[in-house]
Design a binder for these strands. Sequence first.
DNA 1: CACCGTTCAGTTGAACTAAGCAACGGAATTCGG
DNA 2: GAATTCCGTTGCTTAGTTCAACTGAACGGTGGA
Length: 429
Amino acid sequence: MGNDAGFHEIELIKIEGINKKVMDVKMAQKNLKSFFQGFLNKERFFVDKKVLQVNYSPPSLVHRDEQINQIASILAPALNFEKPSNIFIYGKTGTGKTVSVRHTLDELTVVANEQKIALKTVYINCKLKRVADTEYRLVSTLIKELDDVTIPFTGLPTDEVYRIFYDILEKKKVLLILVLDEIDQIVKKTGDELLYNLTRINSELKQSIITIVGISNDLMFVDTLDARIKSSLGEEEMVFPPYDATQIKDILSQRSKIAFRLGVIGEGVIEKCAAFAAREHGDARRAIDLLRIAAELAERDNKEKVSVDYIDIAENKLESDKTLDMVSTQPKHFQCVLYSVISCSDPKSSVASTGSVYDYYVDVCKKTGLRPLTQRRVSGILAELEMLGLINSKVVSKGRAGRTRELKVSIPYSLLGKTYEILKKSLGL
DNA sequence: CACCGTTCAGTTGAACTAAGCAACGGAATTCGG
DNA sequence: GAATTCCGTTGCTTAGTTCAACTGAACGGTGGA
């Protein structure tokens, strides 16, 4: 082969590199110490950061009293161990659906505990891949939440899993309030069998009761259901309207009072956050994230206070973190397909056709040693990527030139380069 | 020019397959008496 | 002889494959005005 010499050379360089690295590390460690000391001594922006995190449930919710009262009055019969109606809640992301439900359930649980009522609430997000994205997996996570019994992740008949669930419930004699967040996702993917089975179990239960609280972003969701299920399930429906800018402002000021040290939030910062988020169909979660990230960035830069400029930076970071994270956590083949879509996009119109993408994909697979999947599967993967919002597609017929999906990457242009790099690295190209 | 059948390049639904797993039941092995 | 271990069988889920029907607008041929 004759590359022995070269090999040694590389080794030598490596060793030299390591020596250099050791020195760097020593230096860095010295700096690191002072860095950490500085970190401690510095006046921190945050008093209680978790107030601004996603799963924080505030003690009181502004601008959702009406909805909370409604949920509460629907669920109140639970306190007499009577079955509350099932609820279906619709609304765009960040309109406070999840928080409101959680808040109400927390309060309800407190009262139920005082009254010694066996009330149990379980919250499951149906979108989570590999956790609750099929009927089997959802019921098995449900069981795990309920009784900490682990169900094998494959091998059992779904009926059996339902039976275990049924037995646990019957044994426990509880009133279970089951919150299924993003329920439209799982139904779209696996059909409405799940809902049917849950209602069926409910009618068979003698000792226990299940009430389902379904949360969906898709207003049309209920129309896609079978009429039988609709009638037995959609007993109560609620719609959460988006927040307007002033409401978001209220939410932000309420939270920032707890989260931040006094005076670190600059003039107009909250207003700007609110305006940004209101522009995006009143997404309060986004507004909160924006504020948090802006503060984090300002703090990192050793600023006195959070200024308005940081919100723009935060906006970019928020967007990029979200997409880049999503891209890097996809399975290999998904990444490969996405990479192909980006590569095949016509520089002018930025669209790609399925055929060219597939050819390119097969090439990429060969290069990376991946076994290429069939076109059918790739078609499915493209559909899933579209669900994730990474690409846009439209089926177009081009007459004699056949039919195809026009694929368009919907990753913002500013992130495309970075995304491309991540994909390349992850695929080993 | 209007109309209509053909054609292309995928799309999409359904049936099927392989891999990985659990439960079951019978055979083989071990063990204490 | 009873208890335990081992092993093959069966049946399940899930991801992916195979098969085939379906799609819809441009193309191109036909006939009528």
